[in-house]
């Protein structure tokens, strides 16, 4: 058991080290504008459109979760005046970005990993290299930047939808008046709360992008390039993304203000 634990810790440490190296190379490439801009825009458009249905449905479901979470306290403490504020904090900064970050890992992250893993397994990355093109700025980093761009683009509409659904559900299921909820948001929610939520979502995008690209490209260095190896790469990327998102969320919550 100790050996298994040691192996698991060793693997995770290796993953984190590789992720940090990838992040460093991506930062350097970005600062020198070595990322293919056209490919980045194409990937952003593709990933955004692809993930739109998931984010819409997920936002409605998360709105339901946020509403029910708040309604329990409204009913128990007769606190309908602060329901809107609490729901907005949850939607824009805490629960909303966290659950949307999991959605990002599931849709955008898993897709990116699968694509890169298939390219690596079929030697397409080597073929690009043989043509004298560095696959990282041409193929990998555009997907990383596109994942971060998607997280930014999704944050405002998705979190607003979460809040709107929470208000509607609270007025239909509970006795929470819509006007009171909206007044509560206008009175108590500060711009810093929204900014913290946006920063959180950007960092989730970075984590999911790095984890998914790393897991996909790692297939190139593996001897096993079978169909099963692609599946395992998606699995590894998903696990790494999820762990990264929740850990980042915890660190930001501990460091952040009360909003």
């Amino acid at each position: 058991m100790l050996v298994a634990l040691g192996e698991a810790v060793g693997r995770r440490a290796g993953d984190i080290g590789a992720l940090l190296l990838s992040a460093r190379r991506a930062l350097i490439a970005g600062s020198r504008l070595r990322v293919d801009l056209t490919e980045t825009l194409r990937q952003t458009d593709r990933l955004f459109v692809d993930a739109l249905p998931l984010f819409t449905v997920a936002s409605v479901a998360v709105g339901g979760v946020v509403a029910m979470q708040g309604l329990n306290y409204v009913a128990r403490y007769s606190a309908s005046e602060v329901f809107g504020w609490a729901a907005a904090m949850s939607a824009y900064r805490d629960v909303g970005p966290l659950l949307l970050g999991c959605g990002l890992a599931a849709r955008v992250g898993a897709r990116t990993t699968a694509e890169l893993a298939v390219m690596a397994a079929r030697d397409r990355l080597d073929a690009v290299r043989a043509l004298g093109i560095d696959p990282e700025p041409a193929v990998v980093w555009p997907r990383l930047v596109a994942t971060v761009a998607c997280s930014v683009l999704f944050w405002a509409p998705a979190c607003t939808l979460v809040l709107a659904v929470a208000f509607v559900v609270a007025s239909l299921v509970g006795d929470q008046r819509l006007a009171t909820s909206v007044w509560s948001v206008a009175s108590y929610v500060h711009a810093s709360t929204l900014l913290q939520g946006l920063v959180r979502m950007v960092l989730f995008g970075v984590v999911v992008g790095l984890a998914s690209c790393h897991a996909g490209v790692a297939v190139a260095t593996s001897e096993d390039r079978s169909a099963g190896a692609i599946g395992r790469a998606v699995y590894a990327g998903a696990v790494l993304s999820l762990a990264g998102v929740v850990m980042t969320n915890a660190v930001l919550s501990l460091l952040g203000g009360t909003g």
Binding site: V118, A121, S226, A227, I230
Partner: peptide
Amino acid sequence: GGAVAVGEAAT
């Protein structure tokens, strides 16, 4: 149909 399908299925 192989590797691509496996990746898509997992996603």
